[in-house]
């Protein structure tokens, strides 16, 4: 698969003060590879360096060190050509406040070289796509946060980008609007086949939207992979709770494949397995075969938040050591 984004050894520091300069290291050796056509999520807490990384990849910011290729083009030497092929939408969108939705789209359309009938068509299409018809004549400062976000998405599609950068696209939005925005992002990506790199600190958003995810913390990528493999990697396990009648042979439970831990108390059996969906069937079958009457089963899956917290633990922990081992090999994989 061809790469849409390739970043190697990206470092970035910011300096404050004139006489007594203090340095803040924001990115510390980022390696990243994003394939064409995938939705890749950069997940991390506030201050992890997500926006800085996105800004560097979108040519708004120069890295101190490192090489970046976007769609095979060098981000320093061919920045102008890259900007023709990428676009950016960020949460807490800001546009020219005295202009209406339609005027803002026309204005940015002009900056992307659209003119005449072509621009009119494009603006009309995007207003319709993002459900902005009723607000086309409303000035930006009178739009709700959700509408501003829709406008930001519309603006980011003006040039039919091959790579779309979304910086916290649902931050500050209420749940129903967030869901709608996510659906639009998925639909747009599916229809246009574009590569999307999004940053978020919302684990569920990343899990629902992204094909692959990288965890970013303190300017370093802790790990990356698809959501399921990340969960498997931390081996936190999924919890299967079974309410039953009868007698469960505890020793038998431990021998079932994939079982990490278990406990049985007063008609409730709690089993931690590596992959809940895969192990649930054999577990129920085994208990039924032993004559246990199953009353109720619930499956609690590990979510990305728990995975992220595990990855974020200090380097003294087992996971930390595990990550240190991973660092070199994964750098190639990322």
């Amino acid at each position: 698969m061809a790469l849409a984004i390739k970043a190697e050894g990206i470092y970035k520091s910011f300096y404050t003060g004139w006489l007594k300069r203090s340095e803040k290291q924001v990115l510390r050796g980022i390696h990243l590879e994003v394939e064409k056509g995938e939705i890749f999520g950069i997940l991390g807490p506030n201050g992890a360096g997500k926006t800085t990384l996105l800004s560097i990849l979108s040519t708004l910011l120069f890295p101190d060190r490192g090489q970046i290729e976007i769609l095979g083009m060098d981000s320093r030497r061919e920045a102008h050509r890259i900007r023709e092929k990428v676009n950016l939408s960020s949460g807490n969108a800001n546009f020219l406040w005295s202009m209406t939705v339609e005027e803002n789209l026309h204005f940015y359309g002009m900056l992307y070289g659209l003119a005449g009938h072509r621009r009119n068509q494009k603006v009309k299409e995007l207003i319709s796509l993002l459900g902005l018809e009723e607000h086309r004549g409303v000035s930006f400062d009178r739009l709700s946060t959700g509408m501003k976000q829709r406008l930001a998405l519309a603006k980011s599609l003006l040039n039919d980008p091959s790579v779309l950068f979304l910086d916290e696209p649902t931050v500050g939005l209420d749940p129903s609007v967030s869901v709608w925005i996510r659906q639009q992002i998925q639909m747009i990506q599916k229809e246009r086949g574009m590569t999307i790199l999004l940053t978020t600190h919302n684990m569920r958003e990343a899990e629902r939207l992204c094909d692959r995810i990288a965890f970013l913390k303190d300017g370093r990528i802790l790990t990356a992979g698809d959501p399921d493999s990340l969960k498997r990697m931390v081996r936190l396990g999924d919890l299967i709770k079974i309410e039953f009648e009868g007698r469960v042979e505890e020793d038998e439970l431990g021998r079932i494949e994939g079982v990490i831990n278990y406990s049985v108390t007063n008609g409730l059996c709690e089993v931690i397995v590596d992959e809940g969906e895969r192990r649930l069937g054999p577990l129920i079958t085994k208990l039924s075969e032993d004559g246990v009457k199953i009353k109720r089963v619930t499956l609690g899956q590990t979510d990305l938040e728990e995975v992220f917290l595990e990855f974020s633990k200090s380097s003294n922990s087992d996971m930390g050591l595990y990550l240190q081992e991973l660092d070199h090999d994964q750098a190639k994989y990322l």
Binding site: S55, L60, R81, R83, S90, N94, F95, L111, Y112, N159
Partner: peptide, 17 residues
């Protein structure tokens, strides 16, 4: 205008010299 609207990055990410 971009300064007042805090929309500077949208101008500089556009392919305009």
């Amino acid at each position: 205008y971009d300064l007042w609207a805090k929309s500077m990055k949208h101008t500089f990410i556009a392919p305009i010299h």
